[in-house]
């Protein structure tokens, strides 16, 4: 297997025009995703976290071309040899490659058609790929079983299933074509806490069994802690920190990450338990502040932060941060450094 990353995202952008007045004049843009670049290795799970509205869903959808990005490139290499740019691929290329990637949605109720049986729902991606009808049933039943669904109930409609079961159906649909990449957009946040753990375990298990790569969206850090290899933190359309999960939890290099971490329940009672209350509003993607977007809420902000926008740079090997002062700050994590 080559070392070529599965995904190489370069300068991905998605701007939503703001229209106003009866004539719908475009008066500005919501920069929901603004110049995002990163790589995803084969078999890797990347957690994508950030507050509501920071652009996680939009980024996930742009990557998989559920919506058309405004700019940038998404180089996708499902098979070792070829690489296609999903961001600019034409309809035909895109449809041919759809079987290599899929999506799991946040809401297991609106993501299943109430008018199709669960069997037909799971089979939909296979039919779209023109898989012979004779093979479809076997594939559907196999994946349903892997996802913990009893094949005897496949001829029912989704309304007969609970939220957790529905999410299993969504996962089965996403995996039925043997994809290599799955974008899971907050797959557990709509579920009961007791069911969340079951679904996370299922994803964890399937990931190993099927050697999947995940982009796992979550709005807080506690959900991704156990499933993600690396975590990217987003703020107002940009990735502001990206590194290994362990590294991020123990030694964050961005004040925003530190604040998010301070809200995570502490595993170690010896650590100082201080929740950093973020003052002010989340900056608006339509009208972001000057300099560092985080500066109005940052307790370390200095003069340079108001005027100059920081870029995402590698502050340590494998650790990217978009903070001017990353090297000079000593920020608190939640897990003690692994020096024992």
């Amino acid at each position: 297997m080559s070392n070529k990353p599965l995904l190489k995202i370069e300068g991905l952008k998605k701007y939503f025009p703001i229209e106003s007045g009866a004539l719908r004049k475009v008066t500005g843009y919501v920069k929901a995703v603004d110049d995002v670049s990163f790589e995803l290795a084969r078999g890797e799970v990347l957690g994508l976290v950030g507050e509501s509205g920071c652009g996680k869903t939009t980024l996930g959808r742009c990557i998989i071309r559920a919506i058309d990005p405004t700019g940038g490139a998404v180089h996708f290499s499902p098979l070792d040899d070829e690489s296609i740019d999903l961001a600019s691929a034409d309809k035909k290329t895109l449809r041919r490659n759809r079987r290599h990637m899929n999506m799991v949605f946040q809401d297991p109720f609106s993501s299943l058609s109430p008018r199709m049986t669960v069997r037909d729902i799971i089979a939909e991606p296979l039919r779209a790929q023109k898989i012979p009808e004779s093979e479809i049933n076997g594939k559907v039943e196999r994946i349903a079983e892997s996802c913990g669904l009893n094949p005897a109930f496949l001829s029912r409609y989704p309304n007969a299933f609970s939220g957790g079961q529905r999410q299993r159906v969504c996962i089965a649909r996403a995996l039925v074509t043997d994809p290599v990449l799955v974008v899971a957009d907050e797959p557990v946040s709509a579920l009961d806490v007791s069911v969340q753990g079951q679904i996370l375990n299922l994803l964890q298990h399937l990931r190993q069994e099927l050697n999947l790569s995940f982009i796992f969206v979550a709005h807080d850090l506690s959900v991704v802690e156990h499933i993600a290899d690396r975590v990217a933190v987003m703020y107002v359309g940009k990735i502001i920190e990206l590194t290994d999960t362990e590294q991020l939890y123990s030694r964050p290099q961005h004040p925003y990450t530190e604040a998010l971490l301070s809200a995570v329940p502490k595993p170690d009672p010896d650590l100082p338990d201080e929740t950093i209350i973020l003052g002010g509003e989340v900056a608006s993607a339509a009208n972001p502040p000057s300099g560092c977007y985080f500066h109005p809420r940052c307790r370390y902000a200095g003069e340079i932060c108001r005027t100059e926008a920081p870029t995402l740079r590698e502050v340590e090997p494998g650790h990217w941060s978009a903070c001017h002062l990353a090297e000079s700050l000593d920020l608190a994590g939640v897990v003690p450094d692994q020096d024992d």
Binding site: R61, I64, L94, N102, M103, E124, R127, A128
Partner: peptide
């Protein structure tokens, strides 16, 4: 959208 990302025409 699920149908769309599954490649349904």
């Amino acid at each position: 959208m699920a149908a769309k990302v599954s490649g349904v025409s």
